[in-house]
Nucleic acid binder design. Sequence first.
DNA 1: ATAAGGATGATTTTT
DNA 2: TCATCCTTAT
Length: 744
Amino acid sequence: MSELLQQLNPAQRRAVEAADGPVLVLAGPGSGKTRVLTHRVAYLIAERDVDPFNILAVTFTNKAAREMKDRLEALVGASAAQTLSMGTFHSLCARFLRRDIVHLERERDFVIYDSDDQQRLMRRVLRELNIDEKRNQPRAVLARISSAKNELVGPAEYADLKHVGLFESNVAKCYPRYQALLQEANALDFDDLLSETVRLFAQYPEVLAKYHDRFSALLVDEYQDTNRAQYLFIRHLAARQRNLFVVGDDDQSIYLFRGADVRNILQFEQDYPEAQVILLEQNYRSTQSILDSAQAVIHASHKPKHLKRLWTENGGGAQVRLHEGYDQDEEAAFVADEIVRLIAAGELAARDCAVMYRTNAQSRAVEEALIRRTLPYQIIGGTRFYERKEVRDMLAYLRVAHNPYDSVSLMRIINWPGRGIGERTEKDLERWATTLGVPIFQALRELEDPATSSPFAVRTITALLGFLHLLDELIAASKTLPIAELIERIVARVAARETLEREYDLLEAEDRWQNLVELRDVAEGYKNLPQENQLSTFLEEVALVAEVDKLDPNADKVTCITLHQAKGLEYGAVFLIGLEEGLLPHSRSVDDRDQLEEERRLLYVGMTRAQHKLYLCCATKRLNYGRTTVSRPSRFLADIPKALLHTPGRRSKAPAAPQATMFSPRSALGDKQPVVGSRYTRPSAAPPPSATRFAAGQQVRHATFGEGIVVTSRLVDGDEEVTVRFSDRERRLLASFANLELVE
DNA sequence: ATAAGGATGATTTTT
DNA sequence: TCATCCTTAT
Ligand SMILES: Nc1ncnc2c1ncn2[C@@H]1O[C@H](COP(=O)(O)OP(=O)(O)OP(=O)(O)O)[C@@H](O)[C@H]1O
């Protein structure tokens, strides 16, 4: 048997070796779905002689694609691995469209508009159509349009739908204009990447045929979270050869809000009646305690279609621990103290710990607590690097240099740095361009002719032309300079550093300047690409990086991440915080049954990220928009049998008076952790492992420290603490982490 | 045209 | 709380 298959259990092997044709691997968390998908790709190349060039694999993140490629390099060589088509739906679609969007009468050097660009564009649309921005918030309008696009409903079809209320008919008015302006700017928004590709496939069979010729094997990870457009994308591609391998778990579907439809995976067998369905039941990630608790949460509400029993050989492990804190600061303090304790106990590094939450705002308290204890950390999400103002301004210059019709970017920088072009002028310019029916850049060009009648004063025209000529210069420069040098040119021409120093105080200016330096450093990485592709590749990748792509698993840091982004990841110890009514389930999701169930799945996803230790945390009071509110534990916690949870004795009194907490950075529990073996109430259920697995005198082996002799072993805090004398010194280890082997 | 200051209102989750 | 919007003064 090939070495490739030896790392798999029989069910996994069956999936990897399945004959050509549709295959559905439906399995719970930690059962090795992603592993199976990777091995399937390797297997096709190594054993079935499939050329990597003919394989298309959709991963959930760009990072997953990169990692998979790296791993496959070892197997098939770097150059072959590079010919694999692997990436997210969005990046694959962008790649296809660069090639074939001309069929849709659009140009291939389109830019990708992200949500900030979209909002700016929508504001212009609302202004133009005289629609009130307060009652019809750009974000809300865009959200409707986004769902429409995900369902492949274009502006015309949308207008034909029944509209309830003023808001919806306003959306119907905005949609066509928004789309027209996108086209004028030669821009596509995120949703267009998918819907336009599907339109391309549907309307141009000869184009689709080309892709059929190329891709003989298709693979999709996290299939349960595909939306209609993504589903159709795959269905078109799979139509001829029907050689489609998908993996997923309906219990982990958490992207309903962006149009994901779990029916895509549940109806796979109807779509492909000849499909082989393979269930994986062994979980390799988590301990039994974690698995039991997680399953209690997910099974409390529904009846699975395919019964996915999950079991593990990882052993019982420590009980899942429930911590009810006083407020969000005490909750964060508990988490941070516990991480400190776990690291001090050995076996567990900062990189093995993750703190997960429902909303990004919750990361703040955690961040502060981690800083206070000087724990290294990385926060995924929140304000992204590419969303910082100064970075976006610089990117706007690059984008206009690359595609001057990008009016959103142009308007962004028309007065940055200040050149005496005020709000009034901006509005007039927009209106004037609209009347002329041309992009802003074109309108500016008209001003060059003194005979043109425009709504501007002579002084204003001078300022506008000055800006236009700056752009001309940068456009010319962009044709010859590598990106990093182009950035330097822009920095010099607009006196970026001085501008920042004028706008902000010293510290802030330096900070923002450093961001520009960092952007230039990123750009350096593109200097070896051919000049004509550099800028477009750079801009595309910048637009499509996901936050998780930036997660660095090698850095020894605690990871703070939203539950959504944590999908697919795993950590030794996981802390889920804010498990309260209003937060999880989130208050905006409680009235809708489907949304409520999704909140439950979100918790399930979070719990099943944990390998050895899982902490469920909530607080009784929380600061919510500057106002303290009382909160109750999440209803989902009630679905976990008490016997599975370890709730260490709670303090009977509220922590010190508010003044005291204000002056002492550490919260009430801070210094007194842990409350082990205290007189406080023990959990009503039988304490977990009632006997130690190890005894004094036994010889054991540890992966890093080698062989040693057990000195003592005792039960602590739901886990077993083993003291072992190794050749260099004694160490106290937690049995659930240490993976100690008995030596005969 | 811009800077400063006060009222106001918003936070789910993401490519 | 914090960021954005709106008013007013320069
Ligand atoms: N046959 C196996 N032998 C040993 N370890 C395995 C095996 N299969 C999977 N694993 C390990 O189990 C863990 C989970 O695997 P993987 O991430 O592929 O699961 P998954 O089903 O995709 O999980 P999820 O749905 O939660 O994202 C990984 O650490 C993986 O290396």
